[in-house]
Design a protein around this nucleic acid. Structure first.
Length: 577
RNA sequence: GGGUCCAUAGCUCAGUCGGAUAGAGCAACGGCCUUCUAAGCCGUGGGUCGGGGGUUCGAAUCCCUCUGGGCUCACCA
């Protein structure tokens, strides 16, 4: 199915062009009347001592002499470009056969075999609600993990729970001052949030509360029973809540090792850094100086002797390398923490750990309100992820009930429920995957609940339409797979086939740059091309049975790749909607 | 102030290892439900690619500079 390779072979073997040059410059033209591949001849001008236009013309003439192979239709010069047109019938047929043979293994690979990727994502803070801000890391990380998996990598999905740190000192202080055991039993996260917000209100008038909080965290770190018991309680109540949400989101983890899990590894780590002579005393704290890297010092041990997040990230990274011998160690954490990761990586480098070169911070933008205000747990100004999901599901359900009045295939109660969940959750997921991850997301209900155009429901709709056509065709999918995909060289089918073929490359690109949006956009392009295709070319009412069968095979191939692709983004497909 | 990222259509964004007339979606306007689901399709209008300089046969893309903005800069995470 590799047409690009065929073209490269032809240009280098038959037209005597330098192979590496061809590989380097061969491109896909911006418009269709410029062909399917194009060779810009500018860079040949010097060597040939001729105008690029003339070179392109010479090459076109030479191709005419030599003849083309059966995958090509024609080669012509257009200005300084040599434009290559493929045999559309042949191309579409090849693509369909390829897709139907691969099934759900389409775009998969074995490039990752034997390599383990650790991917840290989601990582909510214990005792705080799961709000829309957590959605970004959760969906981004989950999509990346799914894509790595498809390329054959072994995965270790790590939820680095924020289950440690001074915030727990704050919670302990807050709980003892204003906590309500009854409310805690009834709705733990809500009560913990209430007292956490209360703490931050009170601390304005009572700055010494901060010192109390630090002291209580230190006591927790020393294993004092009162502090430990409270912490453990808060932690367990919170995890139970998170698990429920992950279950609904269809997100899973291989490890819930949070920050607290690295306590035992920290003393030997500190000792090691001291022995290597990179840990120095500064203003009562122990720090690693990073001036030579142009970075501020990295605090490893605070002046009161307790640890800080950097300490725990250092220990966690080392633990991961020792445990998994990772090929890559990926941190899906917000962009504001870039400096933190640069410091942590720099310290590990200074400690002589070369594997730090395989650690990568995959940052992403903020979720903000239109007024520009940040979503903040402290101020209590949050939108819970669950409320957002419920809203999206409810809107979907309303649309389905409305459509049910006019459509001939009526859904059962259960199908309505399942479909609404799939569409609603898909819409939310896609909101976080459609754009470059470093872009901020402005939280607007109208935008997030817009199910038209560039949205997940659009893609799910395209899939549902394909399946509906197949259901009504009178043929089973097994039968359709055996059909000859003939006479599919028309514009709409050819464009669709080409966009499907590009999914493979875009998946690799997306993984390489830790950017699911690259793949998501290509899936969107395929869905759009499919919508055009079936609107333009009647399938069930095709001119004759041969055409009908061929179009059905393209329809089935499209449905298959869309399902596989959406699954890689964590978006479920539905048979009708 | 230092670091870092960004500025493309009214809005939200693609395109940025330099290449052919800068693309989508939304919004606006105009068509298409007696033919496979209108969460759809077709069409129209809309752009000094933040400003200025430079490199180049060629710049949204590379360099310099200015302006405007986001995030961040030691004991929170």
């Amino acid at each position: 199915m590799d047409y690009k390779l065929t073209i490269i072979d032809y240009l280098s073997d038959e037209l005597d062009l330098d192979r590496s040059f061809v590989e380097d410059v061969l491109e896909v033209p911006p418009r269709e009347d410029m062909g399917d591949f194009a060779l810009p001849c500018f860079r040949l001008a010097k060597a040939y001592r001729k105008a690029p236009q003339a070179i392109a013309q010479d090459l076109a003439d030479k191709a005419k002499e030599k003849g083309l192979n059966d995958r090509m239709d024609r080669i012509e010069a257009q200005g300084p470009y040599l434009n290559i047109f493929l045999n559309k019938d042949r191309y579409t047929a090849d693509l369909i056969r390829y897709v139907l043979e691969k099934q759900e293994r389409f775009a998969s690979s074995d490039e990752g075999n034997g390599k383990t990727v650790c991917i840290e994502f989601s990582s909510p803070n214990i005792a705080k609600p799961f709000h829309v801000g957590h959605a970004f890391t959760t969906f981004l990380g989950d999509a990346l993990a799914r894509m790595y998996g498809h390329l054959g990598y072994d995965l270790e999905r790590i939820n680095h729970l924020g289950d440690y740190g001074t915030q727990f000192g704050k919670l302990i202080v807050a709980y003892e001052n204003w906590g309500d055991q009854e409310a805690l039993d009834e709705n733990p996260i809500k009560e913990l949030l209430r007292i956490y917000v209360k703490f931050h209100q009170e601390v304005k008038d009572n700055p010494e509360l901060e010192d109390q909080a630090r002291a209580r965290f230190k006591a927790l770190e020393e294993g004092q029973p009162r502090e430990y018991a409270l912490w453990k309680d808060f932690r367990e109540l919170s995890i139970r809540e998170f698990d429920r949400i992950y279950d609904r989101l269809d997100v899973s983890f291989d490890s819930y090792r949070g920050e607290s899990a690295y306590s035992d590894l920290i003393p030997p780590l500190v000792e090691e850094l001291e022995e290597k002579g990179i840990l120095v005393d500064s203003e009562g704290a122990k720090v690693v100086m990073l001036d030579d890297e142009g970075l501020p010092p990295c605090i490893v041990v605070k002046s009161d002797g307790s640890t800080i997040y950097a300490t725990r990230d250092l220990a966690a990274a080392k633990y991961r390398y020792d445990t998994y011998k990772f090929y890559k160690n990926v941190y899906v954490v917000g962009l504001p923490q870039s400096l933190h990761f640069r410091q942590v990586f720099a310290v590990l480098k200074k400690a002589g750990y070369d594997w730090v070169d395989n650690c990568v911070h995959v940052g992403f933008g903020l979720v903000k309100f239109p007024e520009g205000a940040l979503l903040s747990t402290r101020s209590g100004d949050v939108v819970y992820l669950e409320d957002l999901l419920d809203e999206a599901v409810k809107k979907t359900k309303d649309i389905i009930l409305e459509n049910n009045k006019t459509r001939d295939e009526v859904m059962t109660e259960q199908e309505i429920e399942e479909t609404s969940q799939a569409i609603g959750l898909g819409a939310i997921r896609y909101t976080f995957l459609r754009n470059g991850r470093e872009k901020d997301i402005i939280f607007r209900w109208e935008d997030i609940l817009d199910f038209e155009g560039d949205s997940s429901p659009y893609m799910q709709y395209a899939y549902a339409r394909a399946k509906s056509i197949i259901r009504k065709s009178g043929y089973t999918e097994e039968e359709i797979m055996a059909f000859e995909p003939v006479r599919l060289g028309e514009h709409a089918s050819f464009v669709l086939a080409k966009s499907i073929a590009q999914l493979e490359e875009s998946l690799k690109q997306a993984v390489k740059s830790y950017e699911p949006s690259i793949f998501a956009r290509q899936v969107m392009t395929v869905c759009r091309n499919f919508s055009r295709f079936y609107n333009q070319m009647p399938i069930l009412a095709a001119p004759d049975e041969e055409d009908k069968k061929a179009r059905l095979s393209l329809c089935l191939a499209s449905a298959n790749v869309v399902k596989t692709s959406l699954n890689l983004l964590g978006i479920k497909t539905v048979e009708r909607m």
